[in-house]
């Protein structure tokens, strides 16, 4: 089943009078249970592509069909609902709320989606190995630990798709591998569709498929076996 499809999609940013094209003529399909890696040099448009695929940004031109509907046709409320229930996000800099504990950061996503099952928070914290740290604050944790909390948060509403923007970018090799293993488990065991941006070729091997962007264009689209 196709979850996301891009057709002749272009994205550019306007800065005053200057228009900067970032993505050019992107045609791409993301199927259910894909583990898609997006790679490429710095400035190639990887993160922008991730944001457009997830609906966080709208394309300048072309179509993006997300969960059977054109992103341009979603209103703000519909996009919020999708982010609440269908999509999870993981960022390079974790984006945890500094004033909330580990548990509360994960709970925040549940409360926003009006979820009722608090035990899900405990399950996920156990799954990512952070149950013992649930009363700590983000600034009391290492980078790897914070990223695991962010992963738990992204999963609390059982999303169809997880978008991960350089989740290992701030981590050492050991922590980075742990995070990638976790994502791989989510794909394999929990059948999540994952779209991952990474600049590291080492982490591409965790993916089932990868595309390479250079100067905003897809130059490679390969299926991989793990």
């Amino acid at each position: 089943m196709i979850l996301i499809e891009c057709r002749n999609m272009n994205k550019s940013y306007q800065n005053g009078q200057i228009e900067t094209p970032v993505l050019k003529d992107i045609n791409l399909v993301v199927n259910d249970n894909d583990f898609l890696g997006i790679t490429g040099p710095s400035g190639s448009g990887k993160t922008t592509l991730l944001y457009v695929l997830s609906g966080l940004e709208k394309p300048s031109d072309g179509e993006v069909i997300l969960l059977n509907q054109n992103v341009a046709q979603y209103n703000n409320q519909q996009m919020s609902n999708i982010r609440k229930n269908q999509i999870g996000f993981i960022f390079q800099f974790y984006n945890l709320i500094p004033n909330l504990t580990v548990r509360e950061n994960v709970m925040l996503a549940l409360v926003i989606a009006k979820g009722k099952d608090d035990s899900r928070v405990d399950q996920l914290l156990t799954m990512v190995g952070m149950a013992d740290y649930q009363n700590r604050y983000p600034n009391e944790l290492s980078g790897g630990m914070q990223q695991r909390v962010a992963i738990a948060r992204s999963l609390v509403n059982d999303p169809k798709i997880i978008f991960a923007d350089e989740p290992t970018g701030n981590l050492d090799t050991i922590n980075g591998n742990e995070i990638m293993n976790l994502l791989h488990r989510l794909h394999d065991e929990h059948k999540k569709t994952i779209v991952l941006v990474t600049h590291s070729d080492d982490y591409i091997k965790y993916c089932s498929r990868f595309i390479k962007l250079v100067d905003g264009k897809i130059v490679k689209d390969e299926v991989l076996s793990f």
């Binding site: 999708i82 982010r83 609440k84 229930n85 999509i87 984006n95 004033n99 926003i112 989606a113």
Partner: peptide, 19 residues
């Protein structure tokens, strides 16, 4: 300054402005 970051995260998680 703090609230900006909180609001951004809440929106990314699907929370609406009212929240």
């Amino acid at each position: 300054k703090d609230f900006r970051q909180q609001m951004g995260v809440i929106q990314i998680l699907g929370g609406n402005h009212r929240f």
